[in-house]
């Protein structure tokens, strides 16, 4: 039985706790031994992406301390998983033993299911037309392209209607969304045009931060399309 330590990102913890619960439920049913370390907080990405490397490093050091002896660290976010798996290397010396092998222990949720547990059918059921948004870091840094789609294809009652701009950024980008709100908003509106063209009722992704941006614009535009994290879809029965 694989031992899984959940890293519930700060945005999931504070804004979308149901995503964390859904992920725990799916992993539990897939036969994992799950733990949640309460001392955890954030991966440090907000500081790193804003150029505050010293602050990012102190938070990263804290993360590594909390998860020191964890086997698998599974994350409901491609972006946060990539911060840990790839960008920590830029914050520490190359020879630092704390980051050695980190990339093979930290997994984005959907790829952990498909590539480590070899599970594609989690027994979920959801009667919806769904479209999938490729989060940029999930797609380009964590190579998450096939896994979420395979999982969605096995959800009973769900039809996957790909949008034409699935791989285009939603415009969130962390502090970019508030430093350049008009540009970020413009990007999001281009994204939702593509979503609406797909005819989907729900937008699914691996990252709550993208979904917060997309939901915010969908709601502002008065559309009835809703966003759901992949974990919530897979936890539907």
């Amino acid at each position: 039985m694989p031992r899984v330590s959940l890293f519930v990102t700060c945005i999931v913890d504070q804004v979308f706790p149901q995503v964390g619960l859904a992920m725990a439920g799916v992993l539990d049913r897939a036969g994992c031994e799950i733990e949640f370390r309460e001392a955890q907080t954030c991966c440090g990405q907000p500081a790193f992406n804003s150029g505050y490397r010293r602050e990012a490093r102190t938070v990263a050091e804290y993360f590594l301390q909390v998860f020191e002896d964890a086997d698998y660290i599974v994350v409901p976010s491609g972006s946060c998983a990539s911060m840990i798996a790839h960008h920590y290397a830029e914050l520490f010396d190359a020879g630092d033993t704390r980051i050695a092998g980190l990339a093979s222990r930290v997994w984005e949720f959907s790829r952990f299911l498909v590539d480590v547990l070899h599970v594609e059918d989690v027994g979920a059921r959801l009667e919806r037309v769904a479209t999938y948004h490729d989060g940029c870091h999930a797609l380009r840094e964590m190579r998450t392209k096939e896994a979420p789609r395979r999982l969605l294809e096995h959800v009973r009652g769900l039809r996957l209607a790909e949008m034409d701009a699935a791989e285009e950024c939603c415009g969130f980008g962390g502090t970019f969304s508030v430093k350049f709100p008009e540009v970020s908003g413009g990007m999001a509106r281009t994204k939702i045009d593509s979503i609406l063209r797909s005819g989907a009722e729900i937008v699914v992704s691996t990252d709550s931060s993208c979904l917060m941006q997309i939901q915010g614009v969908l709601s502002r535009a008065g559309t009835g399309v809703r966003t759901m994290h992949l974990a919530e879809v897979l936890d539907s029965r």
């Binding site: 999931v12 913890d13 508030v178």
Partner: peptide, 23 residues
């Protein structure tokens, strides 16, 4: 930042209870 966010899109409310509390 809040004003900047709301200039373009709606904001979801914070959860009543965080994941760690629910857990």
């Amino acid at each position: 930042p809040l004003k900047a966010w709301l200039s373009q899109r709606d904001l979801p409310p914070l959860a009543r209870r965080s994941f760690r509390q629910l857990w």
